[in-house]
């Protein structure tokens, strides 16, 4: 790891101030992606601004027909949350599949979506749930938030503070982990919510997480696994690597989608 300077922020405002003091600073929350990346010398922030101790970024609330999850909420907290299990059990299930127990104790939902790793689990749920990403300065629809591999609509110093969504009528998540890394080789989150049926796919897309329009159309009239039987996935827009070709991933997208619907 290259040398860096650590700062612990006590509030969102404090974090913005600390970040503003340096051009090459990065926010760190659980650090479950950033610290290993820095260890590999693939990232070299001059400064780290730690968001893990900001009280206003923590906690889960359900009120007024919206679920709100503070960005600093850990995967373990989401997985175990009675509120989430009641409002959207598929999301609790998804959180329980991220990394391993130790990673889930540190990693946060805000960190995951701000990083937008193409194999991360949460972005698929954010898309499928039509979630709103709440930052220190605005609200961004999930559809507008995830813009490419490791890229988001966030400005350089912008902080994800929370995510909110309306509890879906039905939702399911099915994941096929990469045999080595155990990140999603393909993960599909399906949700039938106030805005209709939405399908988010992670791990498979060459440009990161995406919505599967054909599946959404097929499921709109008939929210069942059978409805997906005729739907195909175009491999030309999918990732290909030593673990899985685009064709294989296309198959996984279809299979995981059927299983997610069946589980919903």
């Amino acid at each position: 790891m290259y040398a860096t300077n650590y700062h612990r922020a006590s509030s969102v405002a404090d974090a913005l101030r600390l970040k503003g003091a340096s051009d090459e600073a990065k926010y760190v929350s659980g650090g479950m992606t950033l610290i290993p990346t820095m260890k590999q010398r693939l990232a070299a922030p001059s400064d780290l601004v730690d968001l893990r101790h900001i009280a206003e970024m923590k906690g889960i609330t359900v009120s007024g027909g919206r679920v709100r999850i503070g960005a600093g909420t850990t995967h373990a907290e989401v997985a175990q949350s009675a509120e989430i299990k009641a409002a959207c059990p598929a999301l609790a299930h998804l959180a329980s599949l991220i990394g391993d127990p130790q990673v889930r104790h540190m990693g946060t939902i805000g960190g995951s979506i701000a990083n937008n790793d193409p194999a991360a689990d949460y972005p698929s749920a954010m898309l499928a749930l039509a979630a709103t990403i709440v930052t220190d300065r605005r609200e961004i629809a999930a559809d507008d938030f995830f813009t490419g591999l490791f890229e988001t609509a966030l400005q350089d110093d912008e902080i994800v503070v929370a995510v909110t969504f309306a509890p879906p009528e039905r939702a399911g998540y099915s994941k096929f982990p990469n045999p080595a890394s155990r990140y999603a080789m393909t993960g599909v989150f399906v949700a039938k919510g106030p805005g209709g049926v939405r399908v988010g796919v992670t791990g498979a897309g060459a440009n990161g997480v995406f919505r599967h329009a054909a599946m959404e159309a097929a499921l709109t009239g008939n929210f069942s696994a059978q409805a997906l039987s005729g739907v195909t996935t175009d491999p030309s827009e999918l990732l290909s690597d030593i673990h899985g070709s685009a064709e294989y991933r296309a198959n996984l997208v279809n299979v995981m989608a059927r299983r997610a619907v069946a589980a919903a």
Binding site: A180, S181, R182, I242
Partner: peptide, 26 residues
């Protein structure tokens, strides 16, 4: 079932150089 060392046949780069790509039995 899981393990295999892969080198890129053109460049000779090791493609399985960490547990991210080399599948260890869990």
């Amino acid at each position: 079932l899981l393990e295999g060392v892969h080198y890129d046949p053109q460049t000779g780069q090791l493609l399985t150089a960490s547990y991210m790509d080399y599948a260890m039995p869990r």
